[in-house]
């Protein structure tokens, strides 16, 4: 694991979560979350199903509203932004969804170029050219460009989704369970691609996963969520010596330990 290549120079916080809480009805999903991700850093949030990982991501993206606390992106409180500022902020984001979330009504290249054509108002011909470059960057040929997402395998869909996430050269990229549902080799391919994309773009990355191999490969820093709370955070090098028995149980995948065997299912 070569974590030495990480850019240590930039320390400006890109994403800050300050005492963020979120409930659905009577069920509290996030409890007083404090988390800072510096510019150019790759943070991985680990945790079991239903621990609040996806909700954390959706709150930062503005897809869900947090009940209390402040979320700042690049120093700005996202709750105070008007729709134009929100639009500008979204242009900085790229997101790889767990299931790919490709638009099945559009061919592959238009999926990849979607943010360029509609978000950045780029000419379609030029957007297609960039889309083909990004498709190439994720290791796929131009032959898939005119296929529809339904014609691709799961691993290919994930790679196209990755190409879509990086198409606009975003400053911040979110990865939601990037390796779930893939075979180990394809998972490693995706991890390598994520690492390469983040390094090439110099982007800030926030991933959520419960795949430890993936976390070890792409993380600079790790935070562990358990029952809506961040119970440990630290650099990846210290993950194995965290001194936290919850973390130890989780990263070693042991059935016995402080984390209850039965974890609540996702909301």
């Amino acid at each position: 694991m070569s974590k030495t290549s990480t850019k240590k120079t930039a320390t400006k916080p890109m994403i800050e979560m300050d005492h963020v809480s979120k409930s659905f009805g009577t069920k509290t999903v996030l409890k007083d979350i404090n988390l800072t991700i510096n510019k150019g850093e790759s943070m991985v949030i680990i945790g079991g199903s239903g621990s609040g990982k996806s909700v954390t991501l959706k709150c930062i993206l503005g897809l869900m509203e947090n009940d209390s606390g402040v979320i700042k992106v690049d120093g700005r409180d996202i709750a105070e932004m008007d729709s134009d500022e929100r639009h500008a902020l979204m242009n900085k984001f790229g997101m790889l969804f767990q299931g790919g979330a490709l638009f099945d009504s559009l061919p592959v290249w238009e999926n990849v170029a979607f943010g360029l054509i509609h978000g950045r108002k780029m000419d379609r011909r030029q957007a297609r050219k960039i889309a083909l470059e990004k498709i190439d960057a994720v290791g796929m040929g131009a032959s898939v460009a005119d296929l529809y997402p339904a014609e691709l395998s799961g691993g290919m869909q994930k790679r196209i989704s990755l190409a879509r996430a990086i198409a606009t050269n975003p400053e911040i990229i979110f990865f939601d369970e990037p390796t779930t549902g893939l075979d180990p080799i394809m998972a490693d391919v995706i991890n390598d691609l994520i690492k390469k994309c983040v390094t090439d773009l110099g982007a800030t990355a926030l991933s959520i996963t419960h795949d430890m191999a993936s976390a070890r490969k792409i993380a600079d820093k790790v935070a562990m969520l358990y029952q809506g709370e961040i119970i440990w955070t630290g650099p990846i090098e210290k993950l194995d010596n965290s001194g936290n028995e919850y973390v130890d149980q989780f990263i070693n995948g042991r059935a016995n330990g402080p984390i209850a065997k039965h974890t609540e299912h996702k909301k």
Partner: peptide, 21 residues
């Protein structure tokens, strides 16, 4: 189906309002 498969969330993250699109 677009909601269930997160395609609507994907639209928002690509700076396109699902209401408009």
């Amino acid at each position: 189906t677009m909601r269930v498969t997160e395609q609507i969330d994907a639209l928002s993250t690509l700076s396109v309002s699902p209401y408009k699109y």
